[in-house]
């Protein structure tokens, strides 16, 4: 998720290595030896299980009937597509991820701009702002559910009461909004951090020149700062999307998938570990991966663009 490292690594032409050709081959062998343990670990822990998931998805297999296991072809996929749950979960996933990403980005931008200014206690304000990102998501979900958004004793409803509004049963009446609210709270600091770094990387001379030329603050922001921030916004949006696509904790803790909040990761959990339908759940898993790949490929393309600009291609 912190995949925004784009420091330029300018390389000498390989011929400039101190030793000759054999020395270079030796160094390459060393490099491979250094890389191999991490690569192998990653393959064993993530790729092989994924291949197994694909294999399971082609089988009819319920843990309650271990004797009945057999090859099922694409039956599980047909079931997944025929069953309305997949499509409605896909919708829920897109809605939750999309809204939380948009809200976190707008708020993250606002806070980045506000906390980039010099003001009294800026350091403390920044420290407080990064806290939601550090808080254990399970703890955050529990506290939001029972302490802030509780229908009878929650602070949110008390606040509504102060301005004369009726109380809201957040978890049951507005489950979707509740989930998006909590996720936005957790991801705004993440977006803010990236955008704040972008603001700090801005060329101060250009800003001063704009001020000297009499451009107003808003115009300077719109015409100089925003274009400069674009790349940072893109990266923040893509990373946040990928993390939010997998979100599970607040849904498991706050709504248990009720009220249209059953995202793909929660649906899969339910099918596999409550319903014990291994084959069908594996098919859900593969479909979830396909959805993520669509997003991830966009993400990788953007990162690639950043890369080529920074000259990692030798």
């Amino acid at each position: 998720m912190t995949a925004l490292m784009t420091s330029p690594t300018r390389r000498r032409p390989s011929g400039a290595a101190p030793a000759g050709d054999s020395g270079r081959r030796g160094r390459l062998a060393v490099s491979r030896a250094l890389l191999w343990p991490a690569l192998a670990t990653s393959i064993v822990l993530t790729q092989i299980p994924f291949l197994l998931t694909i294999y399971y998805s082609l089988q009819s297999w319920n843990m309650l009937r271990p004797g009945d296991r057999g090859f099922a072809g694409l039956d599980n996929y047909a079931d997944v597509l025929r069953d309305g749950s997949f499509l409605s979960s896909l919708g829920a996933t897109v809605a939750v991820t999309g809204s939380a990403v948009v809200a976190s980005t707008l708020l993250g931008m606002l806070f980045a701009v506000l906390l980039d200014r010099r003001f009294v206690g800026r350091g403390v304000a920044r420290t407080l702002m990064i806290t939601p990102f550090l808080v254990m998501p399970a703890a955050a979900a529990l506290i939001w559910k029972w302490s802030i958004l509780d229908a009878a004793t929650g602070m949110a409803n008390w606040g509504l009461g102060l301005v004369g509004l009726p109380p809201v049963a957040w978890n049951t009446e507005l489950p979707m909004l509740t989930i998006i609210l909590v996720l936005t709270w957790q991801y705004t600091p993440f977006v803010m951090l990236i955008l704040l770094a972008g603001l700090q990387a801005q060329d101060k001379d250009v800003l001063e020149a704009a001020a000297v030329d009499g451009a107003g603050a808003l115009r300077t922001f719109g015409e100089i700062t925003l274009p400069h921030l674009r790349q940072y916004v893109e990266i923040a949006v893509l990373l946040a999307s990928i993390m939010l696509l997998q979100v599970f904790d607040p849904i498991a803790i706050m709504t248990r998938g009720t009220g249209g909040t059953k995202t793909l990761s929660y649906l899969l959990y339910e099918r596999a570990f409550v319903g014990l339908e291994v084959g069908e759940a594996a098919a859900y898993g593969v479909m979830t991966v396909l959805v993520t790949i669509v997003v991830a490929s966009v993400a990788l393309r953007t990162l690639f663009k950043v890369f080529s600009k920074e000259g990692i291609d030798r």
């Binding site: 998720m1 995949a3 991490a38 690569l39 990653s42 822990l45 993530t46 790729q47 092989i48 299980p49 994924f50 197994l52 998931t53 399971y56 990928i242 696509l245 997998q246 599970f248 793909l264 990761s265 899969l268 596999a272 291994v278 759940a281 594996a282 859900y284 898993g285 593969v286 979830t288 991966v289 993520t292 991830a296 993400a299 990788l300 990162l303």
Partner: peptide, 17 residues
Amino acid sequence: FFFISTRFMPVAASIIP
């Protein structure tokens, strides 16, 4: 890219096996 793509892979991809 391989490393980062494993991070993008949802836990759904591997949890059952």
